[in-house]
Write a protein that binds this DNA or RNA. Structure first.
Lengths: 358, 358
DNA sequence: AGCAAAATTTGAATCGATCCAACGAAAATG
DNA sequence: CATTTTCGTTGGATCGATTCAAATTTTGCT
């Protein structure tokens, strides 16, 4: 009881217990992986030896090399690891990825890193059968890294033009258009856009040229969808402020300050993510601006929090569960060919949007 | 451009490109792991060969065996994988574990499984340097499984008497006592307890004998803390209903139905988790019972949601971030000795508790 | 040129298992 | 009793890399 065998190291291998039990390593291996084919008497002897020597079962490290398959999929992002548990969209997506993995018995490895170098190393050394890549900031670099591993991988939400990478995303143009249409139908004509990043590490009002040079096609597409619809009803889109946030609370608030500093503040805000929209609701409420009477807000994503916010958020719902399922399927049943799928989105009307005053 | 090499399989190994480049595999290995020690001309030649043959870099599977360390920690639970992203407590804990891992560059593998057999296999074959075990339902079995791997591991929130397992938890008795004390100080004398599971797969009112036979010591300790304080002020604890939930919405609601069916319903509810407490707030509000005027509610855990509920929840905050950090540290710096740490908790008074009516 | 020191490269050994063809012994069959 | 089957066991080959002592080539110096 006082001194257990598990002192500090565990140099006890299968071969050791085979020797101790007086059998070949082949037989010892069988005792663990196919017990039914070894004679009971031998089996018990080997197991006893294993027990006595403090053997923890065949080391997966060894088994892995032979087996080839890890039976785990890697989920990668260029954000810190805690992004998976903090960000509402990521959480819902992860929950649906989890379900798909549970169903097939696959495990999940979280791969990420703050700095570039570490990220590269982590991706290169991840023990996985494939990657699902979250394309937020730094998405392109991440995709490049993942691609270099030559493992199956899909990018989530990537609207790159690069046809050589498999991707699962939504129809951003149609979705954004739907959001804008909802507001124009209500009668709004004064808008502001709170955008996701167009490129890395920049925030602030963006110009059309900057939009054209966007790294993130998804962001650009959403903007295209918004502006398409706005110009359809005659809004001068060159006057619509487009503020690029980092999809976090701080930059969103700065954006709102900027937008509402104008002489003619908008009556409707198009937010490219629910996260941005929810921060906006808070900010407006703190400013004593009533939503939806003073300002209407429409989000994008359809995270659960949007249903219980104050007021509940009108938003464009992505089929997150479906996307997760498809992504896992794409990895596990990878046939080597890249496929790009675009899923439809839904407008969910809640209480954060109404006709403008007057 | 049309036909890339990466057809379907990747039988291209380091040895292949070594041969192609006309160097030994030792040198080829160096090109990737210690490029600075190989002559530039050779380095370029090998890299070119790798590129030409579609080599994705040294396979971690091979490297792993030699290196010994995986550089990842496994987080295990007997719940489905999505538990990590759904449960508020788990999420906060995971966020703090993530941060600790990020800081040290370690990865995270999520290990879980719905059924028993699959769980055992997943734990046995997890490629990790150690486990952090979430002890909710099925905790004891899980701990047993993890222990068999003979890897460093810590149990979170486990109050087993088994001194041979490392555990990080809070002082449940003191915390519960604090919660009850807060309510008795306010003048409450009629209580009900909504408990976490005492054993697996059972819900309903529990008797003292059932409490004594609890599998989950943590649940029992919290109850002990509650009752200690209640009897101190003269409450007949044998009359206090203790309803065992499964820590989910459905069983909590059933518990509430049961509790409020009594002729003298409680004026204060002691909930053993914030999740239970939050569901309780909703249920009471749907029943038109005002919190805190008609009923006071005190939770346990201190998840972020508790701060923004309606009304904000009075609760016992666990130092979740600290626990996560300690758990990761225990795994990564494991010295083979098991340590059991008990952290202090804090009472956070918010708007869900007030003196009883009259 | 000659020789020691420094810089590179080599190839065998190792990490910890699984797989499988071949083999020996026991059981079934003629 | 000889011959086939069946069953269990053996040990070498393999998975894909890294490591390191020894061998080889280069460089530096007189």
């Amino acid at each position: 009881m006082a001194s257990l065998t598990a002192g500090n190291r565990r140099p006890v291998r299968l071969a050791d217990i085979a020797k101790a039990a007086g059998v070949s390593h082949g037989t010892a291996s069988n005792v663990f992986s196919r017990p039914e084919i070894v004679r009971e008497e031998v089996r018990e002897r080997v197991k006893a030896a294993a027990e006595a020597m403090g053997y923890g079962g065949p080391d997966p490290k060894g088994r892995l090399l032979r087996a080839g398959k890890v039976n785990a999929i890697g989920v990668a992002t260029a954000e810190p690891l805690s992004y998976f548990f903090d960000d509402p969209f990521a959480r819902v997506m992860m929950a649906s990825i989890s379900q798909a993995c549970d169903a097939t018995g696959a495990g999940i490895s979280l791969v990420s890193a703050a700095n570039n170098e570490q990220l590269a190393w982590n991706i290169q050394s991840a023990l996985v059968d494939g990657f699902i890549v979250f394309c937020i900031e730094g998405g392109s670099r991440l995709v490049e890294l993942a691609r270099e591993r030559k493992l199956p991988f899909v990018a989530l939400d990537l609207d790159s033009e690069d046809g050589a990478v498999a991707a699962i995303g939504v129809d951003n143009i149609a979705g954004a258009s739907l959001a804008a249409r909802h507001l124009t139908d209500l009668g709004h004509r004064r808008f502001a856009v709170l955008a996701l990043p167009f490129v890395d590490d920049r925030t602030g009002l963006v110009s059309p040229e900057q939009v054209r040079a966007a790294t993130y096609g998804g962001t650009r597409d959403r903007l295209t969808g918004y502006l398409q619809e706005l110009s359809r009803v005659g809004v001068d889109t060159s006057k619509v402020p487009v503020y690029e946030t980092a999809n976090d609370a701080a930059t969103t608030r700065t954006g709102l300050e900027t937008i509402f500093a104008a002489k003619e503040p908008p009556t409707a805000i198009l937010a490219m993510s629910d996260r941005i929209a929810l921060v906006t609701l808070e900010w407006l409420s703190a400013r004593k601006l009533n939503v939806p009477n003073d300002v209407s807000v429409v989000g994008f994503d359809g995270v659960p929090e949007a249903a219980v916010s104050e007021p509940p958020l009108t938003t464009i719902a992505q089929p997150i569960a479906e996307m997760g399922r498809l992504a896992v399927k794409a990895i596990l049943e990878s046939d080597g060919k890249v496929s790009r799928q675009q899923l439809p989105v839904d407008l969910i009307v809640r209480a954060s949007s109404a006709p403008p005053r007057g």
